[in-house]
Design a protein around this nucleic acid. Structure first.
Length: 107
DNA sequence: TGAGTGACTGTAA
DNA sequence: CTTACAGCCACTC
């Protein structure tokens, strides 16, 4: 279990992602002021507490890079359940559903 | 303290 | 279009 510093900030921000929207690791890292810590964001989500919608966080291509770590189909199921469409582990119209915390929250 | 690692990203070929 | 390489930051051992 992590000590939760940077991680806690990541969880906090991911929880703010609106339902039916998605974000990216880089956007989250940037919103936290760590533009180069995108990898850490993904690493943080590896701990994936139940109250963190990690399925809404994708890489810059809109691909479910971490679906394997999330529980296989579960990630895709959750996204589709929120009205999103996933094909070949990639979110359709990703740019249309993209939610940038740095912009939307004016962080 | 230092080396290894990664659910990433941007640029180059 | 895809594949490769290097830079990046935080965490663990």
């Amino acid at each position: 279990m992590p000590s939760n510093d940077f991680f806690d900030d990541v969880y906090k921000l991911v929880r703010l992602i609106p339902k039916g929207k998605v974000s990216t690791y880089g956007a989250i890292a940037n919103a936290l002021g760590k533009s180069g810590a995108a990898r850490q964001v993904g690493y943080a989500l590896n701990c994936c507490p139940d109250d963190v919608p990690a399925h809404r966080v994708l890489n810059r291509k809109g691909v479910l890079s971490g679906k394997n770590y999330f529980g296989g189909e579960r990630m895709k199921e959750l996204l589709e359940f929120e009205g999103l469409k996933v094909e070949k582990d990639t979110l359709i119209n990703f740019e249309n559903y993209f939610w940038d915390p740095a912009t939307e929250l004016d962080y």
